[in-house]
Structure formats: structure tokens, C-alpha cells
């Protein structure tokens, strides 16, 4: 696929996808807008700038794999996949509806989705499985796994981090969406995960810390994660500091919009704000 490397253009795409996210959740009157909006800049740069993939050939053997472990953030990934042509945009209208393609949580029956997720903590183990398969098959594709920060409270994440660290899975890149809010409340006040960077370092990972809404920083982090001279045979985690609900004032840093849809008035305001972003 043709790759984009113009930061302004990438930011523009991300902001237009923000509108698609809010529309999907509003239309379905359910879904998870907060973590979708925090992740969308990272995902946009990943898909448009870095990932080796082909929307017309979703099972291309040499493609890079992206696993969305925080599988509730379907509005973000579906918005991107539809925009890229993995499936018709009309499918977005059926999001979370019966007999429709787009399930509430990711499903491998959808072109471009590599894992049926939904239960947190499992995506890194699953991604490791794909990374082990690449090693056995002597393939050089990369495996990217996006996890949430609340998700790292799951013990299995650390089992998997240890596995990747011990086996030096340097074809593995974790994207940690550090948006600081989980379902009920703030991560820090629920069960603090700090010092998060030190934890990954202790598990033998190369750690990169960035602002997850700064496109240039995301581009550089993804380049570095692919640079053997930088990761030095280790798996790499990009800890991206983000804002939950980024782009919609009343959703930003608001635990209420982890898994709640905007009502009609809120939707109108949200779209007005997002339109101003361009």
C-alpha cells in the first residue's frame, strides 16, 4: 500500500476518523469512544505510514500483523479499516447491530482484524504466538500489539511480556495507549501501574516514551522500533502518553466516556468541535 509520510496529512486523516468514531458510537448508542479517540493518532500513523499491508489482500502472507488487544476500541480500528477499503463503509452503519458484520469487540471474521479480542490481557500472548510463527517460518514481518494502560493490571500481560523478553522476540512491538482512565475511574486511583516504563525495562524490553498525539513523535517511535541498532535484539514497547476522549472537550479525561455513547445534544457538540479541528 502507498505510504504517507506527511505529518499534517496524517493528522488530518486522524481527525476525520475521530468524527467517524463519534458517529459510530452515537448511532449504535453504545461502544467505547474514550479509548478509541486516545488511540486514533497512533493507529492512523501505524496504518498509513508504517504497516506493510494490503487492504485488497488481507491475508497476504508477508503482511505485518496488528493485534488490537484492547478489543473494545472497535470504533477506531473499524473506522480505519473502512477508510482503507478492507470492507465497504456502509458496514459501519451496522456496528453492534444484530446480523451485521461489525461486532462490538474485534472479530477475525472481519477483513483486516487479526484477533477476536474482547477479554483484556490476552493480545500480547496471542501476538507472541504470531511472532513465534514468523520465527519458525523465517518470515520477517512485524507484529504490533496495542494494549491499554488499565489492561496492564492483568497478570497475563506480564506473563507474556516475560515470554517475549526471554525469547528476545525482536519482531514484536507493543503500543501502550497510556490514556490514564479505565472503566470505572482513573488508573492511578484504581490500581496504579507505575513505574510502567521501568517494569517493561525489567522484563528486558526496549522502551520508547512519546506523546501519543504528536504525529512526528509517533512516526519516529515506529521507525526506531524497527531499527535493529536501536532495539538491539529486544522486543520494543512504545509508551504513548495520551488523553482519553482526545478531541471532544467533554469526553477528554472523563471516565464517563470510557464506554458510554453521547446523546443527541452531546453528539452535535462533539461534531462541531471535531469539525473545527479540520
Amino acid at each position: 500500500m502507498q505510504k504517507l509520510n506527511n505529518p499534517e496529512q496524517l493528522k488530518k486523516i486522524a481527525n476525520s476518523l475521530r468524527k467517524v468514531i463519534v458517529e459510530m458510537v452515537h448511532r449504535a448508542q453504545s461502544g467505547h469512544p474514550g479509548g478509541s479517540l486516545s488511540a486514533i493518532d497512533i493507529l492512523t500513523v501505524l496504518y498509513y505510514y508504517k504497516l506493510h499491508h494490503d487492504p485488497k489482500n488481507p491475508k497476504w502472507q508477508d503482511r505485518d500483523r496488528f493485534v488490537l488487544s484492547k478489543g473494545h476500541c472497535t470504533p477506531a480500528i473499524y473506522a480505519i479499516l473502512a477508510e482503507l477499503g478492507y470492507f465497504p463503509k456502509e458496514e459501519l452503519l451496522g456496528y453492534r447491530k444484530i446480523n451485521a458484520l461489525l461486532q462490538g469487540h474485534t472479530s477475525i471474521h472481519i477483513h483486516g482484524i487479526e484477533m477476536s479480542a474482547g477479554s483484556l490481557g490476552q493480545g500480547l500472548s496471542y501476538g507472541n504466538g504470531i511472532a513465534f510463527a514468523a520465527r519458525l517460518d523465517k518470515k520477517d514481518y512485524k507484529v504490533y500489539v496495542m494494549i491499554g494502560d488499565g489492561e496492564t493490571q492483568e497478570g497475563q500481560v506480564w506473563e507474556a511480556a516475560q515470554t517475549a523478553g526471554v525469547h528476545k522476540l525482536d519482531n514484536m512491538v507493543v503500543l501502550l495507549d497510556r490514556n490514564k482512565i479505565q472503566n470505572d475511574w482513573f488508573v492511578e486511583k484504581t490500581k496504579s501501574i507505575e513505574p510502567i516504563a521501568d517494569k517493561w525495562k525489567a522484563f528486558n524490553w526496549h522502551v520508547i516514551e512519546i506523546d501519543g498525539h504528536d504525529v512526528k513523535q509517533i512516526m519516529k517511535a515506529l521507525d526506531d522500533a524497527n531499527n535493529p541498532a536501536i532495539v538491539n535484539g529486544k522486543p520494543c514497547v512504545i509508551i504513548a502518553q495520551t488523553v482519553k476522549g482526545k478531541g471532544v472537550s467533554f469526553m477528554e479525561n472523563n471516565p464517563d466516556f470510557h464506554g458510554k455513547a453521547p446523546n443527541d445534544a452531546e453528539f452535535k457538540q462533539a461534531m462541531e468541535e471535531l469539525n473545527k479541528l479540520g
Binding site: 490476552q122 496471542y126 501476538g127 507474556a160
Partner: peptide
């Protein structure tokens, strides 16, 4: 748990 889910990825 890690073993079973890695098996799924494989």
C-alpha cells in the same frame, strides 16, 4: 494463561 493464548496465535 500465556501458554494457551500463545497457542491461539500460533
Amino acid at each position: 494463561q500465556d501458554m494457551i493464548t500463545t497457542a491461539a496465535g500460533l
